[in-house]
Design a protein around this nucleic acid. Sequence first.
DNA 1: GCTTGCTCTAAGCGCTTGCTCAGCTCGGGG
DNA 2: CCCCGAGCTGAGCAAGCGCTTAGAGCAAGC
Lengths: 234, 234
Amino acid sequence: MRTAEQTADGEGAPWGEVEPEAARRLLVAAVEAFAERGYHATTTRDIAGRAGMSPAALYIHYKTKEELLHRISRIGHDKALEILTAAADGEGTAAERLSEAVRTFVLWHAAQHTTARVVQYELDSLAPEHRTEIVELRRRSDAAVRRILGDGVRDGEFDVPDVPGTTLAVLSLCIDVARWFNAAGRRTPDEVGALYAGLVLRMVSAREPREPREPVGPGDSPDPKAQGADGPQQ
Amino acid sequence: MRTAEQTADGEGAPWGEVEPEAARRLLVAAVEAFAERGYHATTTRDIAGRAGMSPAALYIHYKTKEELLHRISRIGHDKALEILTAAADGEGTAAERLSEAVRTFVLWHAAQHTTARVVQYELDSLAPEHRTEIVELRRRSDAAVRRILGDGVRDGEFDVPDVPGTTLAVLSLCIDVARWFNAAGRRTPDEVGALYAGLVLRMVSAREPREPREPVGPGDSPDPKAQGADGPQQ
DNA sequence: GCTTGCTCTAAGCGCTTGCTCAGCTCGGGG
DNA sequence: CCCCGAGCTGAGCAAGCGCTTAGAGCAAGC
C-alpha cells in the first residue's frame, strides 16, 4: 500500500470536509479563538465576529458553543488516531514504525499547533457524554503506540522495562509540542519531527541487538487495562 | 526567623508561607478550583464557597481574581526553579545531576499535580505584566537544564546534537506529567520520577564514554538567546 | 465605656454571557 | 407577479459574572 505522504502530514486543507462554507468559516474562527484564549474565555460574539457574521448566525449552524468544540475535537482526534494507526500498521521494523509514528505525529502537532492546542488541552471543556466519546479515541491512539513498543520488545529491538509507562511518556512528549511550538520560532515542523523521532528512538532502543525473547515477561506484556483515560482527570 | 520547610520533593506544606490563615484558605481553594475547571470557568463565588466564606471576603485579601492566579503561579514557579537550580548546582557527574533534576522535577509535578496544572497551563490567563514576570522565571529554569546538558556534552558523558531543542524536550516531558497524572492511578509520584529519570538519561547518554571535547562545537554551544519564552504564545 | 481597626457578610450594581426571535433579504419555481 | 424557504441580522432576554458598599461582630487600647 502506498503511503499518502503529502496528505499524511499536518498541512493541506484540514477543514475541507466541513460544509457548508459558512459553517466551515465559523469552525475555523472557533479554532483560532479557542487556541488563543481558551474555550471558556472565548465568547460566541468573538467567534461570529472573526467569521464576519452576527452572533445569531452561529446558532443556525451549531446548536451550542460546546457543539463547536465537540466537532473540532472529534475531527482532530480522528486525524491523530489515523496518523498513529497508519504508522503502527505500516511496514518495516518496530524502530522504523516508531520513528515514523513520532515524526508524523509531532509534525501534525507543530504544523497544526493551533488546532492541536484545542484538541489536546480543551478536553475538560466538553460535555460529559462527548468527553467519554473522545477519551475512547485517545485510548485507541495509546493502544497503537503500545503495540509498536510491544513488537519492538518482542523482536529484541527495544529495551523497555515498562511498556505502558513509556507509551504514556512518548505520547505526552509529542502532544506537548502543541503547547510550546511557535510558528515564528527557529524550528520548522519538519525539524521538530526529526529531532523528536531521534530522541524517542534513543529512549527505547536496545544498546546492542539481542535475540528475540520467546516468553514475554509479565512485567513487559502490553496490558489493555493498564491505562485508562490519559486525560487530566480520572 | 525560621526558614520554610526544606523538603526537596513536592510534599510537605506547600502554602505554609501564605499569611494570614484566611488568605491561605482562599489560595488553596483557588488552586483546587482552577485545576479542576480552569481559571476562566472558575467563579469567585466558587472559590469563596470552597474556603467557607462569602464572595466579598475574597476582596479583603486579594484585589482581583487574577491576583490569586498570579500569587499561585509565582510561588509555583519559584519552587520549580528552586528544584532545577538545586539539581544543576549539585555535585556529581552531569548524568547524576540530570537524573536528579528530572526525578525531583517530575516528583513535584506528580505529587503536587493540582498546583502544577495551574502553574503550567494557566500562563495565558495572567495579565500581560505578570505573564512577562513569570516567563522570565521559566527562562531561568530552561537555562538550568541547558547547563547540565552542556556540561555533559563537554565532558563526553552525553551525545546531544541539539542542546536547546533537547532541553526543551526534557522540560516538556516533565511538565506534561501534571496534565495526565492521576492520584488514583497505578503509579506513585516516586515511581514516575524514577521512570522518567531513566528515560531521559537514555535519551541523552553517549553510547560509550569518550574523551571530553576541547573546543566546544558551535552547533552544540549553549546559546543564551537560543530560547525565547517557551509559553504557548510569543 | 467608648473608640479604633480588622475581618467578614448581605445585598446588590453594572455589565457580559449564551442564546432566542421576529423580521429582512434574495434567488428560484409557479 | 407573488410566494417560499434558507441564511442571516438587530434587538434583546434571563442568568450569571467580577466586584463594591454599608454595616455587623469582635478583640485590643486607653
